[in-house]
Write a protein that binds this DNA or RNA. Sequence first.
DNA 1: GATGAATGAGAGTTCATTCAT
DNA 2: AATGAATGAACTCTCATTCAT
Lengths: 208, 208, 208, 208
Amino acid sequence: MARNATSGTSNGGTGTATGAAVPERLLAEATRLFAGRGYDRTSVQEIVEAAGVTKGALYHYFGSKDDLLHEIYGRVLRLQTERLDAIAARPNDVRDRLAEAAADVVVTSIENLDDTKIFFRSMHQLSPEKQKAVRAERRRYHETFRSLIEEGQRDGHFRPDVRPDLVVDFFFGSVHHLGTWYHADGPLSAKAVAAEFSDLLLHSVRQP
Amino acid sequence: MARNATSGTSNGGTGTATGAAVPERLLAEATRLFAGRGYDRTSVQEIVEAAGVTKGALYHYFGSKDDLLHEIYGRVLRLQTERLDAIAARPNDVRDRLAEAAADVVVTSIENLDDTKIFFRSMHQLSPEKQKAVRAERRRYHETFRSLIEEGQRDGHFRPDVRPDLVVDFFFGSVHHLGTWYHADGPLSAKAVAAEFSDLLLHSVRQP
Amino acid sequence: MARNATSGTSNGGTGTATGAAVPERLLAEATRLFAGRGYDRTSVQEIVEAAGVTKGALYHYFGSKDDLLHEIYGRVLRLQTERLDAIAARPNDVRDRLAEAAADVVVTSIENLDDTKIFFRSMHQLSPEKQKAVRAERRRYHETFRSLIEEGQRDGHFRPDVRPDLVVDFFFGSVHHLGTWYHADGPLSAKAVAAEFSDLLLHSVRQP
Amino acid sequence: MARNATSGTSNGGTGTATGAAVPERLLAEATRLFAGRGYDRTSVQEIVEAAGVTKGALYHYFGSKDDLLHEIYGRVLRLQTERLDAIAARPNDVRDRLAEAAADVVVTSIENLDDTKIFFRSMHQLSPEKQKAVRAERRRYHETFRSLIEEGQRDGHFRPDVRPDLVVDFFFGSVHHLGTWYHADGPLSAKAVAAEFSDLLLHSVRQP
DNA sequence: GATGAATGAGAGTTCATTCAT
DNA sequence: AATGAATGAACTCTCATTCAT
């Protein structure tokens, strides 16, 4: 079980290595390493060395290696859920909200590309209970997204002959896979990808 | 590297466990186990036990554990490449060919769902050289697919304002993620998903 | 070494968990846990959690984990030594004194069954010096017991052809093993066992 | 789970270190070390170093450290059970059979003093299931012993006013504790102790 | 063609203890 | 009087791979 995470003595989260508080440093390094080598291929020893502490310190804050992964998921899930909820609650035309939600999740996925990579590659390495918890939270997120599509269908803006749940799986497959091909130093900005993915989604469902 | 892989289908009937030849049995069990537990969490011992042989036998046919994974990739890549090449070479309207190619890759991905799961989860666990080889072959596949989109754009059937490479990444994200949500015993047949994914792709790119 | 052990019974009412003073609570919980899981398998963390204090508190009162064990031995040794000395000093017939001493050590062993279990299972986990100290005290106890047998032999009440030291080892083997089979909720009261063990001892040595 | 124990390639069980077969050597060294330091304080590393092999070899033959302990128990239990069964089945007077059984278990306990020490100190460190198995076998042994006492009571040779089960616990307490005080280089031979313990037991139960 | 004993390096985790506060 | 973060060493166990047979 995660013990108490932050402790919040001081430090606003500045540096990567020795500046930040210990739990933050551990999470940051774990994220970087899990994204690079994969969860199973990253040893606890590597994490603590990268964070400049000892194993004892890690196990003081986190109950297990598994716990670190769960915490990483928690952070990104919370962030994306909050943003989607805010967008979905706006008074705009549902087409605009869907477009914005789609673009937003692409941008935040690219901004947190390490978390995105970890998400789709390592989820099945979580303990069964934690996996269940993460899936439940993810399902809530997908349901909110799906409800936008359903709303658009009721309004007559979106085609009625598509299954909203399949559209969600279709789109989030694309989003989760950003980590396999997107590179920050490539020709495409996060915004450019977001605009294009959002556009593809909208065209795929809109009433012609 | 794989030494001699299959040796054909004969076998002479000496097999201890099931009917098939030893290398086939090993590949089949490895595929099943890798899909279930992941590559790193599947031990060579488990594979040989499931196949009813000993470690020595495995290392007689395959040079390493890594080699098994590479062989699995090889099979599915060969299959999908052949099918795509055949579809792309037909004389039909490019919209029909794209629709058919999209539907076909969905169906074969679902029919080989274990391979699909392994593909996107375990690619980064291959040795660097083998990873490079697989990526190269995959790129060829994507290029063929992309050329269909480019052809449609030249013909005026598809919107000119989308980047063909992004469309490919968009669509194959969806395909690779089938393994995370599709269940054979669910309400949707492989064909139904294929039809819908293909339809979503076509709508997302066609000239309105 | 124990620093100041008890500090009396007062406590001022500041205790966080139950009523008793901190060192007593620690000893009580340690006894319970050592008897249940064994010394090596009980962590300092478990002890302090059971007692409702922190590690710092434990190390304030006791110099080490080893020290706790030594203190537990000290208590039960002091108790049993006092009682035996009192019984041995009475003016009764030596047969009655031996019978009473035997019955008494059985009763107090059962009443402090946790200590009994710890005694014979964990003695060798004490540090060498402490082990020596405990053994010396135990030897004194055995010598007092043995002198009763020798006295009975001189008086002609007990058979002269038995070795008193062997009788002591014979009998205390039985006593120390109470912890392995006696259960408070079984059919036998402490007194019943005490009566029978005492009777068996007396029959084994008395002059027929 | 214990895998296959012996393998019996050659070697009649001569030496302690490098002569004997690997599993035998491991068991012998484990017995010596467990008796000396206790189960929990003996590391797997120490065992394999003493046996001159690597950890992998140990885990090739034994499923766990726990398994080694179980195997040690198995050997001594089997030996003592066989001997008791043989003695109990003889046609002699029951008093002679009880005396012989008592003396025999003392002699074999002293001859295998390491096993005896381990038995009473480390039983509770076995996994619950294995503990149950050992206890069941031990119970059978005790029942055979108890049946001798019951037979003697029916014949009128032994006092009817003692509980046979308590006599068994009484006597085997003494036997199990041999390990705490007996030293091979002391003044008493195994036979001398056996004769005296057997004599004490017989006097404690016989009809005066 | 196939065995299985053995290796050796490294995995995650636990723990008694210390010490600045 | 008491905290709790942090240490560092040791723990049991796993694993892909090799090689004499």
